[in-house]
């Protein structure tokens, strides 16, 4: 599989990671190497195989719909890059 510079820019945008124009070629080369490794698995015929995500095939539990957390807003917001009056501050998103 080959990735174009446009592919890298598209993925980087989807991932919300800035890749500067002079980094694109290097990222492209490294990712191509990794996809060469990954593409080894494409040759395996897996028709009819049930995909697995948990070795013991456990089923997710349900829990009671009850309040279990206490309000710790100040504690949590002490890690925020910018917060005021109980709000997280971000650039304006609604005109």
């Amino acid at each position: 599989m080959s990735l174009s510079a446009q592919d890298i820019e598209r993925i980087a945008h989807l991932a919300r990671i800035r890749v500067s124009p002079d980094e694109v070629a290097q990222v492209q080369a490294k990712l191509e190497g990794i996809f060469k490794l990954i593409d080894d698995m494409q040759s395996v015929n897996t028709q009819g195989v049930e995909p697995m995500s948990h070795g013991l095939d456990m089923v997710l539990r349900l829990r009671d719909d009850a309040v279990t957390e206490v309000n710790q807003r100040e504690k949590f917001q002490s890690n925020a890059p910018a917060a005021a009056d109980g709000y997280f501050l971000v650039p304006k998103v609604i005109e």
Binding site: M41, Q42, V44, T46, E50, P51, M52, S53
Partner: peptide, 13 residues
């Protein structure tokens, strides 16, 4: 990719 990898997990198991 993800689905194929999930199937391979089953085959390895």
């Amino acid at each position: 990719y993800y689905l194929q990898a999930g199937k391979l997990r089953r085959l390895i198991a």
